[in-house]
Simulated assay, not measured.
Amino acid sequence: MSPAFPVPVRPVIQQPPMVEEVLDDAERETLKARIKTLMKQQDAVLVAHYYTSADLQDLAEETGGCVSDSLEMARFGHAHPAKTLIVAGVKFMGETAKILNPEKRVIMPDLGAECSLDLACPADEFTAFCDAHPDRVSVVYANTSAAVKARADWVVTSGIAAKIVKYLHQQGHKLLWAPDRHLGDYVQRITGADMLLWQGSCVVHEAFKAEALKKLRTEHPDAAVLVHPESPEAVIALADVVGSTTQLIEAVRTLPNPEFIVATDNGIFHKMHAAAPGKILLEAPTAGEGATCTSCAHCPWMAMNGLRKLVAVLENGGNEIHIEESIRARARLSIQKMLDFAAAEKAGHIQLGD
């Protein structure tokens, strides 16, 4: 029997004010031209998350970079010959890029761009939780620090979490899960695994309101509801598609519906419009009973990224990601397990069954 150790209480995260970069066309083009010159001089490539600004996403693609989810950003950077990786996103994404690319310089527009899930799971508290339950395999979401990844047995993304948890469950393992309680609950419900859940949550996804979503769906009966599994159970229950950022973009591209109600960060709309320009996209509501804001569908830490800050870091240096080698090496092992599992499952070497 595991030693008595309470599941950590739900942490309170103070999020910064929302401050989005606003540029006129002239300044935008001047900044982009300067960035392109500096990137060539420094042998740099830009990888941007779906939740960053349209300006950064466009610049990444214009310069041969990548716009994707956090893991693919790191994998793209690993395959690209550039010596410098510019990561436009939040800090754990920069750390993941460095974990997989230790030989490269990894910089970010703003190292203060944190993540509520990462902040909600301090490494010392997570380590104590794991130590109290040595009989359980620890599985952490990618939205965690390098130190937490180093302590974990497995790292997963939202797109592969259920498959890996199901595999471990079928092998007879009991699990610890961190940090997102909503994603963990979703995975637990669809796999039946024995999981102890950390109590973190994403400030964006937790804000979506089920009752207001029901009303919006009534007003748009032909719309498909797309939900990221970091959302509350009541919101997930209303979804036509539950999936990762990449899977939700693919749903907009392939489903025949003329409209989509999207329950994830609205930064993803830029890529969705590009993938399916004729489709109508609606933000899932964050207002309603229990709401703390009118519209919370954008991450304030993601909004810290911008062209002005990118110019500054390329001109002045700094904002480089550094990870102690012992931590980086251990974190790489837990990530590599996921990568190896994904490759084996794709090749048909792992059969999960029903």
Score class of each variant (00 low, 15 high):
residue 326 S to R: 13
residue 90 V to A: 05
residue 219 E to N: 09
residue 156 V to H: 04
residue 323 I to Q: 07
residue 189 R to K: 14
residue 207 A to S: 14
residue 171 Q to W: 07
residue 352 L to V: 09
residue 238 L to I: 04
residue 259 E to V: 00
residue 55 D to N: 15
residue 310 L to H: 01
residue 194 D to F: 10
residue 139 V to M: 11
residue 222 D to N: 14
residue 286 T to G: 06
residue 156 V to K: 09
residue 239 A to E: 05
residue 197 L to C: 06
residue 113 A to Q: 04
residue 271 K to L: 03
residue 251 A to I: 02
residue 33 A to Q: 13
residue 206 E to F: 01
residue 251 A to K: 01
residue 223 A to M: 10
residue 101 N to I: 02
residue 188 Q to T: 15
residue 338 M to I: 02
residue 204 V to K: 04
residue 193 A to L: 08
residue 113 A to F: 00
residue 302 M to K: 09
residue 47 V to K: 08
residue 2 S to A: 14
residue 267 G to I: 00
residue 209 K to H: 08
residue 122 P to A: 12
residue 80 H to L: 06
residue 96 T to I: 11
residue 273 H to C: 08
residue 78 H to S: 14
residue 243 G to F: 00
residue 133 H to G: 06
residue 336 Q to V: 00
residue 34 R to A: 12
residue 114 E to P: 00
residue 116 S to E: 09
residue 175 L to N: 05
residue 251 A to R: 01
residue 231 S to R: 09
residue 116 S to K: 12
residue 135 D to L: 07
residue 125 E to L: 15
residue 332 R to D: 01
residue 13 I to K: 13
residue 138 S to P: 02
residue 298 H to P: 00
residue 110 D to S: 14
residue 60 A to F: 01
residue 106 V to P: 05
residue 303 A to K: 11
residue 162 A to S: 14
residue 201 S to G: 12
residue 341 F to D: 05
residue 128 A to H: 13
residue 2 S to Q: 15
residue 287 A to S: 13
residue 56 L to K: 06
residue 37 T to M: 12
residue 137 V to I: 14
residue 254 T to H: 10
residue 333 L to R: 14
residue 199 Q to V: 03
residue 269 F to C: 04
residue 178 A to I: 02
residue 17 P to W: 05
residue 85 L to A: 07
residue 228 H to A: 08
residue 254 T to D: 09
residue 52 T to H: 02
residue 155 V to P: 00
residue 104 K to N: 06
residue 116 S to W: 05
residue 251 A to H: 03
residue 310 L to N: 01
residue 216 L to W: 05
residue 276 A to V: 10
residue 333 L to Q: 15
residue 300 P to G: 09
residue 22 V to L: 12
residue 91 K to F: 13
residue 3 P to Q: 12
residue 290 G to Q: 11
residue 285 P to K: 04
residue 217 R to C: 03
residue 298 H to K: 13
